[in-house]
Amino acid sequence: MNQAPTTPAPAEACASCDVYRAAQLKKLGLAAGDHDFVVALAGNPNTGKSTVFNALTGLRQHTGNWPGKTVARAEGGFSYRDRRYKLVDLPGTYSLLSTSVDEEIARDFLLFGRPDVTVVVADATRLERNLNLVLQVLEITGRAVLCLNLMDEAERHGVKVDDRQLARDLGVPVVPASARFGRGLPELLGAIEQVALSPVSGRVHRLSEEPPAIRSALGELTARLRAAYPDLPNARWIAMRLLGGDDRVASALRRGELAGLADRARGAREGLFNEAKEAAR
């Protein structure tokens, strides 16, 4: 389900056309009160998250060419093909493992805010470094889209990125974009919708090489977590954090908050998915 976005709508030719898609976008600015889906924007600092945010919501979050500009989360809304989305712009972080306030804000929202879709904005010119965060996000949630931003710069610098190879390896949709110039945004909207409406996340990349030193401990703890919370989509990541001594995750576990993490939005999503299937029939 992850590659080649197939839209099972009647007017298929229309649905895949940029002009048509862009016309389906309504920027709702701050009016995100009543929404069907929550979309989080994560990514390394200075990759253009706020630019994507502004382009989709019509808001004017201050953007700047320096890392660390957004330190709080900003929220806005847009509507695409008659569904309303709340978009949350998270602080840019290099990882989700440290304890600075900005990383905690991003991590807590991904883990406890349970967005329906997480868009990870990555700098195409510095893919390897950006992938560190992408892989961490994928450990938390498979309901993700990778927005490969700054493609214009990558081209100028002679860097070529094979987005289809990347999508195969990561198991999530990959959308090349140049948000500063509005390029790739229609495709991004399509991918967001696709992930929002699909009932389960596909075969998402998980860390392939478990460090040998922690393999057995990780296996045991993950198994116990899965047994206790069958709905938890990121048991292994939680196990890793527990082994790493993450106080925030530990206290959530001890207070029984993890039970609440079982897919809260799933019901609503399945409802919409069935609706879409009905309509397609």
Binding site: L97, L131, D162, Q165, D169, L207, S208, P211
Partner: peptide
């Protein structure tokens, strides 16, 4: 634990990036 994890992350990121990124052109802006 943290270091083990970061090493694993870097290894994976490096492998995936090397499969997807190529630099046929000269780095002009550099």
């Amino acid at each position: 634990v943290h270091e083990h994890l970061v090493e694993a992350l870097y290894a994976d990121a490096g492998r995936i990036a090397s499969r997807a990124v190529s630099r046929p052109g000269r780095e002009r802006r550099a």
